[in-house]
Design a protein around this nucleic acid. Structure first.
Lengths: 150, 150
DNA sequence: CCTTGACCTCAACTATGCCTGAGGTTTTAT
DNA sequence: ATAAAACCTCAGGCATAGTTGAGGTCAAGG
């Protein structure tokens, strides 16, 4: 009773092509990221465009986007269609901006680290690496909690 | 029966100074990252140098190092002592290298994304964004699974 | 036909990095 | 002395991103 449309992939085939595990595709489906149809034997059949969709998901993940956000972005597409070139332009522009932010933050951290390697300035109250959190070392009254040496 | 050494911090004080929750400090302790002593009422007392240790943990986390690895790095220090300037030099050099790797990878991804925005090349077998995984689009026999258009 | 591999569902488990709450003790301030 | 604030332990929960396994069905080749 095998019913098979031209150009459709089984879950195993898609998994191999997309470089992910079958369980991962099930998981993405459970999370609403992909919605394959079912054949008359209840097996998943992936129209070919879902391969591109999975590729996009993976790229976005590499960029540090969560699956929830990826789902949002994809579902915001008209008719939840597989992204066209224009759709992809919007998605990738957004994600690239996010990437830029991450890179900027990490680069700043790296530069601070480079500047602080061996300097021992972790012990200072104004060390740029520490200050995001340990702003002052003072209480509300302005009293210094730790002596200058630490 | 309060027994209190000079310069020691309670868990609440350390939490406030380090900018983390008390539960976080308990968690770090459970994971072997910090080991405060106990006073005679069984309450944690943190020698002041643990404040620096916590700062280092947080910096490493920002760099994307897991707590397990941070624990390794810290416990590799002679006598598990609080890092001196030289120790910190070793630690931060290693972590900076890790950061550099991450930044390089993300930058490459960003550049690929920039190059691919709107180009629609996701559909090509040689798209740099896809190729880390979807190497060939071929079976072991060399047969092309998908037509060139997809 | 019939075996084997691929597929199905659902529950449970992994790992990371914490947070929350219950029930009880210690410190601190008045 | 006493009450409130801070602390204690331990179990369990949350979010993310999956993986694993049991028990059963479907599909493809010989």
């Amino acid at each position: 009773m095998a019913e098979r449309l031209e150009n459709e992939l089984s879950v195993g085939e898609l998994a191999k092509r997309a470089g992910v595990a079958v369980s991962t595709l099930h998981f993405y489906e459970a999370k609403g990221l992909i919605t394959p149809r079912r054949n008359n034997g209840n097996q998943r059949r992936y129209p070919r465009n879902l391969l591109r969709r999975v590729a996009i998901i993976r790229i976005a993940q590499r960029a540090g986007i969560s699956l929830a956000e990826i789902r949002e972005a994809l579902s915001a597409l008209p008719a939840e269609r597989t992204p066209t070139a224009e759709d992809w332009q919007v998605l990738s522009s957004n994600w690239k901006a996010r990437l830029d932010e991450r890179i900027t933050a990490l680069t700043q951290l790296r530069d601070e680290m480079a500047g602080c390697i061996g300097c021992g300035c972790l012990s200072l109250r104004d060390c740029p690496l520490r200050n995001p959190r340990d702003e002052l070392g003072r209480t509300a009254t302005g009293a210094v909690l730790l002596s200058p040496g630490e």
